[in-house]
């Protein structure tokens, strides 16, 4: 007898548990780096908690944007040792770009769809105009609406 496939909800919960476990493991192995990342990516993590859209595209985009400025502080932390963690967190030149990148990512994820929609609408209007012209020509040439 074939084993029944697990329902999607069950699978999602498992992934969440695995992710939680991985995060816990990271915190346990590298508590300073985890704390630094948690602070630097705090806006992105907040959006991750708030974003309930399927796939959490906004949160993902903000996380990726916010991750880029974190590379430098993480390398500095690695080279300086555990004591440098709080200094880095307290340094506005480290925290500012990271949060700014998160904000930029969020802003882009809000503005780009509007821009793309504008382009799509303009394209549709142009196509509709072309089709209407073609339609008028057909109607005029063949008298189709009379029939």
């Amino acid at each position: 007898m074939a084993r029944e496939a697990s329902p999607p909800k069950e699978k999602g919960r498992s992934i969440v548990w695995i992710q939680g476990l991985a995060c816990g493991a990271c915190i346990a192995i590298a508590p300073a780096a985890s704390t630094l990342l948690a602070v630097l990516l705090a806006p992105a993590l907040a959006i991750l908690l708030v974003d309930r859209a399927p796939g959490r595209a906004v949160a993902r985009a903000v996380l990726l944007c916010g991750a880029a400025p974190c590379v430098g502080p993480l390398v500095t932390l690695w080279q300086s040792g555990r004591g440098a963690g709080f200094a880095l967190i307290a340094d506005p030149s480290v925290l500012g770009p990271a949060w700014a990148a998160c904000a930029g990512g969020w802003l882009l994820s809000q503005l780009l769809p509007i821009g793309i929609r504008g382009i799509l609408e303009a394209t549709s209007l142009a196509q509709a105009a072309r089709l209407r012209t073609e339609r008028e020509r057909l109607v005029k040439d063949w008298g189709l609406e009379e029939n």
């Binding site: 985009a61 880029a68 821009g115 929609r117 799509l120």
Partner: peptide, 17 residues
């Protein structure tokens, strides 16, 4: 078209990040 624009906008942002 709005859905497509939203998807593409967010995907583009992710790609930039």
């Amino acid at each position: 078209r709005a859905a497509v624009a939203a998807r593409y906008g967010q995907e583009t942002t992710a790609a930039l990040g």
